[in-house]
Design a protein around this nucleic acid. Structure first.
Length: 566
RNA sequence: UGGGGCGUCGACAAACGGCAAGUCAGGAGACUUUGGAUCUCCCAUCUGGAGGUUCGAAUCCUCCCGCCCCAGCCA
């Protein structure tokens, strides 16, 4: 490991673990787990947790399990477990043979529940859901004890086994822990630990009709897997006393739960409920829509594993609520892509340029560098001929101050080709739209250097009209208009902040011929424009690209300022 | 009004009683066959506020203020 790779990210969780190791706790073992519920796709917030759990295991020479927290059959599906496995793998992590499921421990959990009953620490309650809510009290008032709270152990045991055998309908009874109805912590007011659900489970089928609740299942899963540090998000802080209570009562191996603040990112939402709403409401194309903050979405958008992992390391881990600027994510992306993406030339909004003093039937093959950041990536040939396309944005008939690009009478360089000068602007008679530029070239500037060292202020990208390949390019912008999508007018919700221009497609783009056989998922820098990747929608006769992220655009910034100033 | 947390630059985030790191964003400049990349410099005399302890406080104590989470048979 080089010195640049060995930089360590320190945070309060790693500090706790280091302290435990020094104290010789857990026989110096470190064992974490990432415990998603398979009821949706993973997003970048999960990536933070994945990087934390797997990262800590790797750093401390420990292990990390991938465990599905599949205790609610009505919401969970195999599609989700499959996507989660794929996404964690894509992030570069490995759980060896420790692919676990809470459902693997159902029998064990049931037996632990029986034990609690025998200890007089749990009882069958016949209250309905509504009644339980009423009995629970409020944030400021204590709850009332259930009339079923003092049933005998024998009755409880009998009822619990009959719940298991399916004798009772859904919702008719629950198993509850007997703790303290007056606790200030509502989680301790006799929480439900088993409910009746006559639902088919994606792994256990119809074996069960009673399912454990999160609080009961999670601590036991952690315990049986001998997890040392059970890392979760802040909203579970209130549940820690219950986590500890179960393990203490059962007198079994007791992992330590540690909570950290979940990730929030500007201009997007990271709540599973909202993401589901976007998908099911048709606001996006699907879970892998390139605008989605899901791992699948980021992947399709063209993000690299390295950039996502690096981002997760850079944002740190703490307990305070925060919203990370999405610009940091984009920075990590550009930083990575700059080093690895081959450069090519592509014109998104073509403007026809005829080089009037260039022979009609001539074609030259010019040398272009594949990546100035990495000479090892070599060079390629780019064809040049009389009729070209340049970017419409690169020409202004009436150039504003500080616009360095092409304008009537002005000379610029075509990258790797020649200096050209704009001689004439051809417009459509009716619409006045500029349809073509007539330019002259200087044969002495082949390759882009002039022998007289005369300077030009701009270098433009271009493609040869007759050699270029037509392509579709999909452009993306932030999914939401506001940094905080939840900031809404009364009676509206986050969806009212959706950016109507978050996606757009350009259909007559032209890319250089070297891309003829570009494979799905391959990434390129389109010079001066941004990073793009080949979308899986591409076919042999039609290339489709996604714009992953733009390049930093100093001119756009200047132009914006000028507009504000005027 | 109960319980649990949290307040350090525009955004993240270090500092663990010894004199406010770093990163992103932003600004200025250099360089440039990508207005990209790269490089240089600037950007908290101050840590939510007020007191106190101390030679010394972002760090310890007290009291305020603000924000987040909890009343699923979801996780």
């Amino acid at each position: 490991m080089t010195s640049s790779e060995s930089k360590r990210y320190s945070d309060f969780i790693r500090d706790i673990i280091t302290g435990d190791l020094v104290a010789g706790k857990n026989n110096s073992r470190v064992h974490t787990r990432f415990p998603p519920e398979p009821n949706g796709y993973l997003h970048i917030g999960h990536a933070k947790s994945i990087c934390l759990n797997f990262g800590i295991a790797a750093e401390f020479g420990g292990l990390c399990n991938l465990r599905f927290d599949d205790t609610n059959p009505v919401k969970e599906e195999v599609e989700y477990v499959e996507s989660i496995i794929e996404d964690v793998r894509w992030l570069g992590f490995d759980w060896g043979d420790r692919l676990c499921y809470a459902s693997d421990y159902f029998e064990q959990m049931y037996q632990y529940a029986v034990e609690l009953i025998k200890m007089g620490k749990a009882y069958i309650c016949d209250l309905s859901a509504d009644e339980i809510r009423e009995y629970r009290g409020t944030l400021i008032e204590p709850g009332k004890e259930s009339p079923y709270r003092n049933r005998s152990v024998e009755v409880n045991l009998d009822l619990f086994s009959r719940m298991r055998t399916g004798e009772f309908p859904d919702g008719s009874r629950t198993l509850r822990a007997k703790i303290d109805m007056s606790s200030g912590n509502i989680n301790m007011r006799d929480p439900v630990i088993y409910r009746i659900l006559h639902a088919r489970h994606h792994r256990t089928g119809n074996t069960w009709c009673v399912y454990p609740m999160y609080d009961f299942a999670h601590c036991i899963s952690d315990s049986v897997e001998r997890i040392t540090h059970s890392i979760c998000t802040l909203e579970f802080e209130d549940h820690r006393p219950l986590y500890d209570w179960f393990l203490y009562q059962l007198n079994i191996y007791h992992p330590q739960q540690i909570e950290f603040a979940r990730l929030n990112l500007s201009y997007t939402v990271l709540s599973k409920r909202k993401l589901v709403e976007l998908v099911e409401g048709g606001y996006v194309i699907g879970w892998d829509d390139p605008r989605m903050p899901t791992i699948a979405g980021l992947r399709r958008r063209g993000f690299t594993t390295e950039s996502v992992v690096n981002f997760c390391e850079r944002i740190g881990v703490a307990k305070r609520d925060s919203i990370v600027d999405i610009a940091l994510l984009e920075h990590c992306l550009r930083e990575d892509l700059n080093k690895r993406a081959p450069r090519i030339m592509a014109v998104l909004r073509p403007l026809r340029v005829v080089i009037v003093n260039y022979p009609e039937d001539k074609t030259e093959e010019l040398d272009a560098i594949n990546n100035p950041e990495d000479q090892g990536m070599g060079t390629r040939k780019v064809p040049f001929s009389r009729v070209l396309y340049i970017e419409r944005d690169d020409f202004r008939e009436d150039p504003p101050k500080e616009f360095f690009r092409l304008a009537p009478g002005r000379e610029v360089r075509l990258r790797y080709a020649y200096y050209i000068r704009c001689a004439e602007v051809i417009k459509d008679n009716k619409t006045g739209e500029i349809i073509e530029l007539r330019c002259t070239y200087d044969p002495q500037t082949r390759g882009g250097d002039s022998s007289d060292r005369r300077k030009v202020k701009a270098t433009l990208h271009w493609v040869s009209a007759k050699h270029a390949i037509e392509a579709e390019v999909r452009l993306y912008d932030h999914l939401f208009l506001k940094a905080d999508p939840n900031e809404v007018e009364e009676s509206k919700d986050f969806k009212s902040n959706i950016n109507p221009k978050s996606m757009g497609a350009l259909n007559s783009c032209r890319v250089e011929p070297s891309l003829a056989n570009a494979k799905p998922d391959s990434r390129y820098q389109f010079e001066r424009l941004g990073y793009f990747c080949v979308d899986p929608d591409s076919s042999k006769n039609k290339l489709v690209f996604n714009r992953t992220v733009t390049l930093r655009d100093t001119w756009a910034k200047i132009e914006k300022k000028q507009k504000i100033g005027s």
